[in-house]
Amino acid sequence: MMAKAARAAAAWRTYREVTKPGSPKLMTRLRAIPRMVGSVMRGNYAGMGKGKLALLGMGVVYLVSPIDVIPDFLMVIGVVDDFGVFLWLMASLLGESGRYVQHERGVIQARLEEG
């Protein structure tokens, strides 16, 4: 029951962050994910380390993999663990990509101010 409340709280925090005035919107964040991954891999974005990126990648692999820690044939429990990973992954990706968009905006602003 506690994990269910934690997932709901994470989803609510993500929703509030995405809908906050002045914050990058959902589609902006989603489109920024490939750029963010590339920047992290090239070492051009210090806001997220390669370890965190690897952890997010493992979350994606877990979701698409036919092998589960808790098999889906156990119906409710098997689907709930996948859903929990999905919520964590989306909350993490949307949060990180929002910070990355803000970083990009700061870089662009600094370049404009330089001349």
Rank of each mutant, 00 (worst) to 15 (best):
A3I: 13
K4V: 14
A5Q: 13
W12S: 05
R13S: 14
T19N: 04
G22I: 03
S23P: 02
P24L: 03
T28R: 09
R29V: 07
R29I: 06
R29L: 03
R31V: 09
A32Y: 01
I33A: 10
V40K: 04
V40T: 02
V40E: 01
M41E: 08
R42D: 14
Y45P: 00
A46G: 13
K50G: 05
G51M: 08
G51K: 02
K52H: 10
G57I: 14
M58L: 15
G59M: 11
G59P: 08
V60P: 05
V60W: 03
Y62A: 14
I67P: 01
D68Q: 11
D68G: 05
I70S: 00
P71E: 05
V76R: 06
I77V: 15
V79A: 11
D81S: 15
V85H: 06
L89D: 02
L89Q: 12
L89P: 11
A91D: 10
A91T: 11
A91H: 14
S92V: 08
L93Q: 13
L93N: 08
E96L: 05
S97V: 09
S97N: 00
G98V: 02
G98C: 07
V101G: 00
V101S: 07
E104V: 08
E104P: 10
G106W: 02
V107S: 05
A110M: 12
R111E: 14
E113W: 04
E114Q: 11
